[in-house]
C-alpha cells in the first residue's frame, strides 16, 4: 500500500477554538476514503488545510512525499491535487466546455503573446484542451451539455461536471466536499458508481466528506471519523460503524452505553 497523501500531526486553531488537534492520517493510493463526523468536527477545515487554503498552525501535509507546507492552492493544484466545494462552483459565465477547459489551465504553455497573435501553437493547444475536456465530459456521460452555459444546468448536474473538471488534469488526489448534498436517491446511486469508476479506471485517490451515510459506507474503502478536531476512529466501514467512540460522538454518551 503506497501512501498518496499524508497528513502529519496537523493542528489548527481559530481564535482559541481548536479546529484540528494533532490529526495524522495516511491516505493510500487508489482508495476512496470517507471522512465523517458531526457538524463542527473539523472535516472541511482538514480539506482546506490539505489543499493549501488554510495553512496549519502545526504539522505538515505530504503529497507523494512532497511537503505542501507554505504552498498556495494554485501551486498545490499544479502538483495534482484537486477539489470540489460544498456549494457548486461551476463558473456561471462560461459554457460547460469552457468550465472544463479551466481545469486544464495549467496545461497552457503559450502565454500572452501566443494568445494575442493566435499562434499555431496556441490553436493546437486549445484543440487539445477541447479534446481532453470532451473526453472527461464523456467519462461522466455529459458530453451533450458541452455548449450549455454552466448556470443552465441543475444543481446535481453541476456537481457531477465539477467532479469531471477535477479529473481532467489527471490528478493523483481529489478532495470532494459533500458531493451528494441535495441529490436524489437515483442520483446518489449514479454518483456511487462514478466514484468507483474514478478510483478503478483513473487510479485516483478520493477523499470525501459526506453526510449521506449510505453512500459513504457503501463506497469507501476506509473511513476516518473526526470529532471536535480529533481523529477518533479509522478503519473499514464495518469496523467504524460499530466503534463505541463513533456511536458516542454521533448519538451522545447515553446511547453508547445502552
Amino acid at each position: 500500500m503506497s501512501v498518496a497523501l499524508k497528513a502529519q500531526s496537523v493542528s489548527i486553531a481559530f481564535g482559541g477554538v481548536a479546529a484540528l488537534q494533532d490529526v495524522s492520517i495516511d491516505f493510500p493510493q487508489r482508495e476512496i476514503i470517507g471522512i465523517i463526523g458531526p457538524n463542527g468536527a473539523g472535516k472541511t477545515t482538514l480539506l482546506n488545510v490539505i489543499c493549501g487554503m488554510t495553512p496549519p498552525d502545526e504539522g505538515e501535509v505530504f503529497l507523494h512525499e512532497v511537503s505542501l507546507t507554505g504552498m498556495k492552492p494554485s501551486h498545490v493544484a499544479s502538483l495534482g491535487l484537486r477539489r470540489t466545494f460544498q456549494s457548486s462552483q461551476l463558473f456561471p459565465g462560461m459554457s460547460v466546455l469552457e468550465n472544463m477547459m479551466c481545469g486544464l489551465h495549467l496545461m497552457g504553455s503559450t502565454k500572452l503573446f501566443g494568445a494575442i497573435f493566435r499562434s499555431q501553437a496556441m490553436k493546437d493547444e486549445e484543440a487539445e484542451m477541447r479534446r481532453r475536456a470532451m473526453e472527461a465530459l464523456d467519462f461522466v456521460g455529459f458530453k451533450h451539455f458541452a455548449d450549455r452555459p454552466g448556470s443552465a444546468l441543475s444543481f446535481g448536474q453541476q456537481r457531477i461536471i465539477e467532479i469531471a473538471r477535477t479529473l481532467i488534469y489527471e490528478p493523483k488526489v481529489v478532495l470532494l466536499d459533500e458531493p451528494a448534498v441535495g441529490l436524489s436517491v437515483t442520483r446518489v446511486a449514479e454518483l456511487e458508481t462514478l466514484l468507483r469508476r474514478i478510483r478503478d479506471e483513473r487510479g485516483v485517490t478520493l477523499i470525501m466528506i459526506e453526510h449521506v451515510i449510505r453512500l459513504v459506507m457503501g463506497v469507501s474503502d476506509r473511513i476516518v471519523v473526526l470529532n471536535s478536531g480529533q481523529k477518533i476512529a479509522e478503519g473499514q466501514p464495518a469496523e467504524v460503524r460499530n466503534d463505541p467512540m463513533v456511536i458516542e460522538a454521533y448519538l451522545g454518551h447515553q446511547a453508547a452505553s445502552e
Partner: peptide, 24 residues
C-alpha cells in the same frame, strides 16, 4: 484564450479559480 477564461474564473469564483491552479 485561456487568459480570458482565467479572468472570468476569477470573476465568477476566486476560490474555485485558485483550486484549479489559476494564480490570482
Amino acid at each position: 484564450s485561456s487568459i480570458g477564461r482565467a479572468f472570468v474564473a476569477i470573476r465568477d469564483g476566486e476560490v474555485a479559480a485558485e483550486s484549479l491552479g489559476i494564480n490570482l
